[in-house]
Design a binder for these strands. Sequence first.
RNA 1: GGCGGCAUAGCCAAGUGGUAAGGCAGAGCUCUGCAAAAGCUCCAUUCCCCAGUUCGAAUCUGGGUGCCGCCUCCA
Length: 504
Amino acid sequence: MLRVHNDLTRRLEPFAPANPPEVTMYACGVTVYDACHLGHARAYVAWDIVRRYLEHVGYEVRHVQNFTDIDDKIILRAAERGEEPAELTRRWEAAYFADMDRLGILRATDYPRATEYVAAMLRFIEGLMAKGHAYAVPDGSVYFDVASFPDYGRLSGRSAEDLGQRTRLDEPDPNKRGPADFALWKAAKPGEPSWTSPWGEGRPGWHLECSAMAAELLGKTLDLHVGGIDLLFPHHENEVAQSEALHDAPFVTCWLHNGFVNIDAEKMSKSLGNFRTVRELLEVHDPMAVRYFLLQTHYRQDLSFTEEALEGATRALVRLRRSLAAREAALAPSTPLVEALGAKVARAFAEAMDEDFNTPRALAALWDARAEIAGLEDADAEAAGHAVAEVRRLAAVLGLDLAAGDAGGGDWPVVAAEAAARLRDVPDHGLAAADQPEAQLAHWLEARRAARIARDFARADAMRGHLTGAGFVLADRKDGSVEVTHAEAQAWAWVWAPEGVPLA
RNA sequence: GGCGGCAUAGCCAAGUGGUAAGGCAGAGCUCUGCAAAAGCUCCAUUCCCCAGUUCGAAUCUGGGUGCCGCCUCCA
């Protein structure tokens, strides 16, 4: 049975959607004005795992994630660049998808844009005003009246007094009746994009879009609402207030929040300037390795980013893949032991994931299975491939493709192609230069093979030394083929196979 | 000031009462012409500190210390 940590109750509780097998899940999306960094990747990988696991255990998830495509930062950035806000936001939406697709994040059911739901938001505000929960001020803005909603603060654990105390430190906004009141509708300043409303030209407040779009697309009460812990207050608190004030129904049954990515013990964020974009990370690292890295930490915990840890995750992924690949072809009729092994890993995996999506433990279950598969003997070893398939199937629930990236696949990374090209400049071995990196490397490997057959190991090792100097790592295999990797190309491998008789 | 979180081996990180998962790094070995890869073995008597509860605590309670986050945009 799946149990989840509900931030509304601050407890682990059974997952109980209102209308199973359907699950409604709303994820707070990004403001599309800049590149995604590892922190964003962390959040969306976490929710991708939640979605995948729910589907794995039989739920049908309606997953909605918004794009905030109108706000102060967008307006400012578009003005700086001299382009329309819509051009800017469409560009960053595309960049968002490019990054997240590479990380293997499943597409949501819907990606509503705030600017396309302004009419729904205006109806929302009018409803709140009719019920006395909102008020307009002279400049044309509309605020939510927090005092009219006694339950305010339940999600974030803040009392009215807490909020009052803070305001002594800040300059009070003369427009607001109460210190915690927040804008539902912001009056437009000259030159800003705006929509017509009963209160004049303006644009929706940030908190409102999630409430309005969630209600439009998923209904008044959501099974799951997810987002970063930084959104807990005030964003999610305000969403609850608006939605429940209007609908007189619980807004969200279960809230999930993910922890931060820390770098040097500090939150990774735009404003601190200590972020690593997904795009730049993927220039060097296998997307699956980045995903694996993120899954090593439970989603609610802060995650420490270090290059060392990311590289460690990459090596772990490569070893897990290779270890399994070594047994994948063993598909003789299965045996009781192999069947039991498959069932055991599936059980351990489910136990881990059922405990609030404990991906570190789920990964450990996969590693335990790897060791058992490697230790199989005789008839069981002949059938090991069936257990490998089971491990890969479970890994896929985490969005990890353990079959990919192994020998033979993938384009040549730039570093490897450049290294191969440099081999042409080594004046030795009487080899013809070749244009393609594959052909260039194949010349060397063929010559080295000839030397090895002639048992001229000094020459063969000298050739390997040159290749090693260029960054290539050779792995001789029993059949005479050579697996080639490159020290700077994470998780990349290329296999050269000789024509003719294999090495004796 | 208010609210909340975290402190586990060189690094990342599970573990909420029963005697420290997993990965990376490191060491040894097997295999190999030699390597690499793969495989096997080893690697925290101890969980920030001090009291307490308990037959028993990394886990519960109290008190410290340190770090981080939210309260303004933020995944």
